[in-house]
Design a protein around this nucleic acid. Sequence first.
DNA 1: CGCACGTTCGTTGCATGCAATGCATGCAGA
DNA 2: TCTGCATGCATTGCATGCAACGAACGTGCG
Lengths: 224, 224
Amino acid sequence: MHAEFYAGPVQTESTRLRLRELILDGHYPPGSRLGEVEVAETLGVSRTPVREAFRALAADGLLAAAGRGLRVVRLDGEELSQVYRVRAALEALTAELAAERQRAGRLAPAELADLAALAERTHRATADGELTLAVRLNRGFHRRIAELAANQVALHALDRLWDQIQVSTLRSLRPPARTALVDAQHRELLDAITAGDPAAAAAAARRHVLDTRAADGTAADDKE
Amino acid sequence: MHAEFYAGPVQTESTRLRLRELILDGHYPPGSRLGEVEVAETLGVSRTPVREAFRALAADGLLAAAGRGLRVVRLDGEELSQVYRVRAALEALTAELAAERQRAGRLAPAELADLAALAERTHRATADGELTLAVRLNRGFHRRIAELAANQVALHALDRLWDQIQVSTLRSLRPPARTALVDAQHRELLDAITAGDPAAAAAAARRHVLDTRAADGTAADDKE
DNA sequence: CGCACGTTCGTTGCATGCAATGCATGCAGA
DNA sequence: TCTGCATGCATTGCATGCAACGAACGTGCG
């Protein structure tokens, strides 16, 4: 494909990001097959950057080989449960680290205020039934904690897990029944970090993630 | 490059694996720059599968962008420490899961015997000064536990972390001073799993990894 | 009528060509 | 001598061509 005005040399990384967005948005639903040509035409690039994006996203666990070609990963209940157990372990770690940093006085008050604001906005969006926004804000809340933990490795590993979970739970935009519980657990986690109590923060994060697993896990039993 | 006898269509995945081996073996040391053409000629393939392998290995955290092109990742002390904290959290999880499965009677006696044999062989190789073998067996011991945990997600995440650690600690093949401690901790971990005690297994695994971090971390202070 | 085999088409695997970028080197001027 | 710029080179970014694999389909035979 020709571009009238050649956009520049960094097409391949942007291709990866744009394709990832399409997958996370549900444009390519879980289980759907991805063809090089079709994706290349959709994104307006040639097959080469698409193939490279395929490899990177496959390494990130978003795409999986399916005989000929690749498919968007579709986790069954057991696999999703495994993802959640790993996520629980990692979020327990990030919460613990964030609380440690708070105890050591290395967190700015503004950072904690931001986190609290995120929790509040998440709660409001959920209560208002803005499900898509609520999902994004919820992920933002958890991600902010991982950022406060100041551990790039944990943050990157969690990003990959969140991506996998987001793809696999796209269909079942959650029944907002647990709204009160989620908000209470978010506050508990926030309070533990604010108090600089690593053990409490780790325990709260672990419990919250495992509770979420229970909710999403049952919801994921909707067969396609 | 031309191959007299065309080897088959699955060159790209094998390229990724062979390049990974070269990096883990130290053929391309940490920090060294990887050129598409040079690697392609070394492996006897064209630049295309090499580029795809680059993307996949970069997503796995083995390669990192460095201005023009890619370099083998070189973790500084702080980053390595972060990797170890994540590894500790994940190995605590896998040890816990393995112990849970043992308690539930889902581990075959032969599996535990294999694990014990691995611990013993690791100990002997270390005592004999067979450092390269010892490193491989040690990784095998930890990996076997992750396999017994039956959590593919944790296993894959750990594989990536082990790769990063292996690359970054290649130079400093460890002073076998901690031999006795390592062996004792391996036995403690093994015993906790055998006893079906998840909490003890998790604690033993976490402590062991963090102790290893302390050893490798100081060793990694050897500047190149 | 069913099964098996062959053919064809679509898709991917890989190689290579061309263009553009960025770095290094050397020259000129202050 | 140092700084600034221009030019050349090495290397990557991307596109496309060609060949092989595999799947779907149709046909012929049992």
